[in-house]
């Protein structure tokens, strides 16, 4: 395959970015999108141009490191797929592919296509945990958990923290991420004791990080490689309202 790649280059968050066009020939249809990027970088290296930087690690769709907005879609046009699992046979020979970073104020650009998603870590640090000292846990079967609750918690916990929800949202809202993280723990009996505290703390950490607001149009869920449902956002809204009301009257 022969491709024209329109790639965003940016030296750092304080410098202006720009698009550069690169021609790349001899791309195998069997290669993954990131392997195509590897190939581009080998070519740039031989031409004396600094390779394009992008985040990636496991390349099997689970670590959540890879990002990229490809032709306007976070993780590319394929549904339920991370960029690393996207393969070149989904593109046409001769196509121009536009590659941009995940854009959001809360995700400052580190360099080129690499962005800083540590805001997600801060949201988790605010309350995305159950307080349990190592060694103090009761027997695993001491507390039965309804299978349906456990399954729903698992659906939420499948979130890989890639940030596609933020990148695909026109408001750069992190509601899908935050609601999945909070929802996972709030659905389980183990998570009840800290539920209110957790929700309030995680939402305020989310607000402080500078993410936008949810407008309920579901673009996040459509872009999510793990198909996290908007229901978790509804649940977060509900849990948050309850927590606020309880706090008001307590």
């Amino acid at each position: 395959m022969k491709l024209t790649l329109k790639v965003w280059r940016q030296d750092g968050n304080d410098s202006d970015g720009r698009f550069e066009n690169y021609e790349l020939d001899g791309v195998s249809e069997d290669s993954s999108f990131l392997e195509m990027m590897d190939q581009l970088n080998e070519q740039l290296l031989s031409q004396g141009i600094e390779p394009v930087l992008f985040d990636h690690d496991c390349r099997e769709g689970i670590c959540g490191t890879c990002s990229l907005t490809i032709n306007g879609y976070a993780h590319g046009p394929e549904d339920s797929t991370t960029t690393c699992q996207l393969h070149m046979r989904k593109f046409r020979d001769g196509e121009t592919i536009t590659i941009e970073p995940f854009r959001a104020k809360a995700f400052p650009v580190v360099r080129d296509l690499v962005v800083d998603r540590s805001a997600f870590d801060r949201i988790t640090q605010a309350g995305g945990f159950i307080t349990v000292r190592t060694g103090s846990a009761p027997d695993g079967n001491a507390l039965p958990v309804a299978k349906s609750d456990s399954d729903k918690a698992m659906d939420a916990a499948a979130c890989i923290g890639c940030g596609a929800c933020v990148a695909s949202c026109k408001n750069a809202s992190a509601m899908l991420f935050t609601s999945a993280k909070a929802g996972h723990l709030n659905l389980l009996p183990q998570g009840q004791a800290e539920k209110d505290k957790r929700v309030l703390a995680m939402v305020s950490a989310m607000d402080e990080a500078g993410f936008g607001n949810c407008r309920n149009y579901g673009e996040c869920s459509a872009a999510c490689p793990k198909d996290i449902s908007l229901d978790y956002i509804a649940k977060l809204n509900r849990d948050h309202a309850k927590a606020k009301i309880k706090k008001f009257f307590s």
């Binding site: 970015g17 907005t69 032709n71 854009r103 949202c169 408001n171 673009e219």
Partner: peptide, 28 residues
Amino acid sequence: LIMENKAARPNTNDIEITKRAGWSSLRM
């Protein structure tokens, strides 16, 4: 909210496209 949202995503994509969001929900 609109002002906050604009601030949260100061740079737009070269290609702005959606998978699910429709005309009405995007133009409230």
